[in-house]
Write a protein that binds this DNA or RNA. Structure first.
Length: 140
DNA sequence: GCCAACGTTGGC
DNA sequence: GCCAACGTTGGC
């Protein structure tokens, strides 16, 4: 199984990257959208995930890793919704802003730009690498 | 099954 | 705070 690449959004007011790092791992719950759920279900342990701050910040701030594949989201009122477990891997030296992403011709087609409301989305390996390169990989 | 109304997300 | 985009709901 080759590594897959993803991007997830979080509002820093709700669950910021720093909190995630302090926690060391987290259950990625609360997704209530069919397209996003499809992506959660396709995630496999070891897949790499960009962590994007929506609203405040509007930037990719770090890299995470899938540590547990999809399981039932117990925070949901109805059955059928799922969560995955994520762990932080590395922060970016410099957040990669939405504006910077939009300015990159190679990143014009990613869902972050084209489908603004989607909260979990796949990235091509080259797109993932491009964003990491723009920000610079730091150490935890 | 279509489509209008409504709610939510998220950029600005 | 406003509003565009878009997903969901519900009437017919």
């Amino acid at each position: 199984m080759t590594t897959q690449y993803w991007l997830v959004k979080s509002e820093p007011d709700t669950y910021a990257w720093d909190t995630f790092v302090r926690d060391g791992r987290t259950d990625w719950t609360g997704v209530r959208n069919y397209a996003a759920r499809l992506h959660l279900k396709a995630m496999r342990p070891g897949d790499e995930v960009l962590y994007y701050h929506s609203n405040e910040g509007k930037a990719v701030v770090g890299i995470a890793r899938v540590t547990k594949e999809a399981f039932p989201d117990r925070t949901a009122d109805e059955d059928g919704w799922v969560a995955v477990e994520l762990a932080p891997v590395a922060p970016l030296k410099k957040p990669v802003t939405l504006a910077a992403i939009k300015a990159e011709p190679a990143l014009k087609d990613i869902a972050l730009v084209r489908q603004g409301r989607l909260s979990v989305m796949p990235l091509k390996p080259v797109e993932f690498a491009r964003i990491v390169k723009l920000g610079g990989r730091a150490n935890l």
